[in-house]
């Protein structure tokens, strides 16, 4: 998990007055996660910085739209960043590149360079997620494809795609559960 100095309810409260303190807390808590997902989608540092900025503008302007009965603050922030990045790709007619192997590569990178992230354990667990499942999560979640579009792109019948999406998330949850019980 991200290291959080503020709990979610504290942060939500703080964000109401839109102060610099609130911004700092928000940015420090979530920018690595948001930047990571944006980089993953747009695949360019320059574009990712623009998209991250646009995402924060949206978060700042539309914070009143956040509805905590629908999910956590983190889920909402991720969705704003994800949708902004997907929209960016669409506006540039960039097609999302599925890279199911990159997490293995970045595990090795992370082990040697970045000790500040304590997310390596989950990353290792993700290696056990079957490539055909990972591919489906990637194209739907990061690529922003509809199920019909994804079924064409991956050349899979729609029914198979739907089953895989469901199984992929079930497996993901099982892997994460194992991960948590190990700790």
């Amino acid at each position: 998990m991200v290291k959080r100095k503020y709990t979610e309810p504290e942060l939500i409260d703080l964000l109401k007055d839109k102060s610099e303190v609130a911004f700092n807390a928000l940015y420090d808590n979530y920018s690595p996660a948001l930047y990571g997902i944006v980089m993953k989608i747009v695949n360019s540092e320059e574009a990712a910085q623009d998209v991250l900025q646009d995402s924060f503008v949206k978060i700042w302007k539309h914070f009143s739209n956040f509805d905590r009965t629908k999910g956590t603050l983190f889920t909402w922030l991720l969705n704003v960043a994800r949708n902004t990045a997907i929209d960016y790709n669409r506006s540039k007619h960039v097609k999302y590149q599925i890279r199911t192997t990159d997490s293995i590569v970045s595990i090795i990178e992370n082990q040697s360079t970045s000790k500040s992230f304590d997310h390596i354990g989950v990353k290792e667990a993700m290696v056990y997620l079957k490539p055909e499942y990972k591919e489906v999560i990637e194209i739907l979640f990061f690529g922003g494809y509809t199920q019909e579009e994804a079924s064409k792109e991956l050349n899979l019948p729609l029914g198979t795609l739907k089953t895989r999406a469901r199984t992929a998330i079930r497996d993901l949850r099982l892997l994460l559960k194992d991960k948590v019980s190990e700790q």
Binding site: S31, P32, A33, G36, A48, S114, H119, M126, L172, L176
Partner: peptide
């Protein structure tokens, strides 16, 4: 679960 998955890609912005 998907948040955790997304977090595996996290990185520090400049």
């Amino acid at each position: 679960a998907l948040n955790e998955y997304a977090l595996t890609h996290q990185q520090q912005p400049p």
